[in-house]
Design a protein around this nucleic acid. Structure first.
Length: 309
DNA sequence: ACCGCATCTGTGGGTCTATA
DNA sequence: TATAGACCCACAGATGCGGT
């Protein structure tokens, strides 16, 4: 290991040790090395083997991979979306362009990295390891909303009112956008209001070690709210668990038609991470020329003509 | 036509925070 | 304090595909 790497790893060990409240003596004891040796490692003056690193990581309550990730977190490039995966002519809310979306997605990656870098520096663990998945996705959703507000014509509405973002022109409202994010690939919309208007569903994945997120699929659709004719949302319910007394808040999910609208409204698709081959769409929903399912439909038709069936 | 397998979908369970 | 908002997870049944 190079001297520079020794210093980086040593500093990470010191930061995490102090964050978890261990003295050098105590950590050295747990890792079965002398505190003089540990001191030398922390200051980057001593070499160490993988075995010693493993012992130190275990004593800190981490895996070697997490410890190394913590040490080099700041030196990794922030993930960016791939420009090639944008579908340029998809239908979008007024005044919104693929470039706007690209910058908002990348900005969200960056903010999540900044949060994680601070946490990893002090404790060796990213944000996603501290909180429940649903709440993490909620945070990503909020950061993405803020990124839109910062970098696009769509600005914060107010608090928890619908929609999340609005676009005004000379005092006149010309557009609204509700932002949703999820780690569930292929999922449609899920909401507790199910209103009419433009929605974005952004699917991302998480790197467990660094906590970095990477958007892999982004869909837009102008959906019809519940209670209206041909609504794209269906009511799922709000029930009280008799045993625990807990109440599940009411939920609306997109219907198969609503989900199909979103899928046909794909704006960004990472083909290596998201396989749409077997996704269902709704025959009632017209397939726009820019839909990623255009290709699928053509392939299926060809198959049907030439296939064994 | 049927079977096995993998994946998708629908449903109902849950947590936590902000606001009225 | 109740409600509305933001989500995820588990599981059973449905679906699609390739092989026989």
């Amino acid at each position: 290991m190079s001297t520079n790497a020794n210093v980086i790893v040593g500093e990470a060990i010191r930061r995490i040790r102090e964050a978890v409240g261990l003295s050098q003596e105590k950590l050295a004891e747990k890792a079965a090395i002398t505190y003089q040796y540990l001191s030398g490692i922390e200051s980057g003056k001593k070499n160490f083997t993988v075995g010693v690193l493993q012992a130190i990581a275990t004593a800190l309550g981490l895996g070697v991979d997490a410890l190394v990730a913590a040490a080099f977190a700041d030196n990794q490039p922030v993930p960016v979306v791939d420009q090639r995966y944008f579908i340029k002519n998809s239908a979008l809310p007024p005044r919104l362009t693929p470039d706007h979306i690209q910058s908002a997605l990348n900005h969200t990656h960056k903010i999540v990295r900044l949060v994680n870098a601070a946490l990893i520096k002090s404790s060796g663990r990213p944000l996603s390891s501290y909180i429940q998945g649903n709440n993490f996705s909620g945070i990503v959703s909020n950061i993405l909303t803020d990124s839109f507000s910062t970098l696009t014509p769509y600005k914060h509405f107010h608090g928890q009112k619908y929609p999340d973002l609005v676009c005004d022109d000379k005092g006149k409202r010309i557009g609204g956008l509700e932002v949703k994010s999820t780690i569930q690939i292929g999922k449609g919309g899920e909401s507790h209001n199910g209103h009419s208007g433009w929605h974005i569903v952004a699917c991302f994945r998480i790197d467990k070690d660094t906590g970095d997120i990477q958007f892999i699929h982004v869909m837009f659709a102008n959906l019809i709210g519940h209670g209206q004719r041909n609504a794209d949302w269906k009511y799922i319910g709000s029930k009280v668990n008799k045993k625990t007394g807990s109440q599940r808040t009411e939920t609306y999910n997109t219907t198969s038609t609503g989900t199909a609208k979103l899928r046909h409204g794909t704006v960004y698709l990472d083909p290596a991470a998201v396989k749409i081959d077997r996704w269902r769409t709704d025959p009632k929903v017209p397939v726009p020329p820019c839909s990623p399912f255009q290709l699928k439909t053509k392939t299926n038709k060809k198959k049907r003509r030439t296939g064994r069936d």
